[in-house]
């Protein structure tokens, strides 16, 4: 009984950590540009794909492979911002959001061209031997996911509170006009926010694809759950994204365990809708 609960909690935290990473990526872009960046979805896929190429085509060891894959997605994200969003002639948010949907379709097309449509398997970071923690068996990959998520959040906190670029990004998030008045370069801030979003999405992809298997649209559902997590916590709030991610992950695994595994997504989304009915700005939203 207790073991089951512990098992569900562990698996919920694992997927929750992934949702939190993706949700953070959504929040970073939203805070500087005020849009939902649907390309985030493909950053997740791309992370897994680049990791696959680093390991098997380039033959790199795991750690450089991971760093290179994450950096690669960040670079792609910057290209997306520079060539895809900056030339747009509109400040209508709906148009910009659908521009990201269009770019996401293009990116998915390119991924399909390069890596094909087949499902691929990515090995976990360390060999797969379940560890027993108080009667619940946990994959080492799950522990890696939790550890690296914590590290990523710590780095992000350091960046936003201790570096001048991070501080200027928070300035833009809190008041774009005032930030422009004091001379904060909007272009660089947007580019950085995309790079961070790409790195977070890429990391989520590298970490989760050994569990889910890898194909060209693996990121879509994960990405949308990440968006749901960001909304659940209050869109744009970093603690909200982490909280929302873990909440959504736990909700899913507990309802899969105790209610019905076929309807686990339904339960998760119905709870999301109920939360929004009661708190229209999310749990931690302003």
């Amino acid at each position: 009984m207790f073991q089951d609960l512990l098992q569900y909690t562990f698996s919920g935290m694992t997927s929750g950590a992934i949702y939190a990473l993706i949700a953070l990526g959504f929040c970073v872009v939203n805070n500087t540009m005020g849009i939902v960046n649907f390309v985030q979805v493909d950053f997740v896929t791309l992370g897994g794909m680049l990791m696959f190429s680093c390991l098997f085509s380039a033959g790199l060891p795991v750690v450089p492979g991971l760093l290179l894959a994450v950096a690669g997605v960040a670079v792609v994200a910057m290209i997306v911002e520079r060539l895809g969003l900056r030339p747009a002639r509109s400040d209508n948010h709906l148009v910009l959001i659908f521009l990201t949907v269009g770019i996401s379709i293009i990116l998915r097309g390119i991924i399909k061209l390069i890596w094909g449509k087949n499902r691929m398997a990515l090995p976990p970071l360390t060999p797969d031997q379940p560890i027993n923690i108080m009667g619940a068996s946990v994959l080492p990959q799950a522990l890696w996911i939790l550890l690296l998520t914590v590290i990523a959040i710590a780095l992000l906190t350091w960046f936003f509170y201790r570096t001048s670029l991070g501080l200027s990004m928070r300035a833009v998030a809190s008041n774009p006009t005032a930030a422009a008045v004091v001379g904060i370069p909007a272009g660089r801030v947007r580019l950085t926010s995309y790079a961070i979003a790409g790195a977070l999405g890429g990391l989520a992809g590298v970490l989760v694809t050994p569990i889910t298997t890898l194909n060209y649209d693996v990121g879509v559902l994960l990405g949308l759950k990440g968006f749901a997590a960001a909304i659940l916590g209050g869109f744009g709030s970093f603690p909200g994204a982490i909280f929302g991610g873990l909440g959504l992950g736990l909700l899913e695994s507990l309802s899969a365990g105790y209610v019905s595994s076929a309807y686990k997504d339904v339960v998760a989304f119905v709870v999301l809708l109920l939360v929004l009915f009661v708190r229209p700005k999310g749990l931690l939203g302003k």
């Binding site: 749901a228 339904v266 999310g282």
Partner: peptide, 13 residues
């Protein structure tokens, strides 16, 4: 964005 997510969630359900 909240409305976008809520309607997306409804579609999903």
């Amino acid at each position: 964005h909240y409305l976008a997510m809520a309607t997306l969630g409804f579609n999903f359900v």
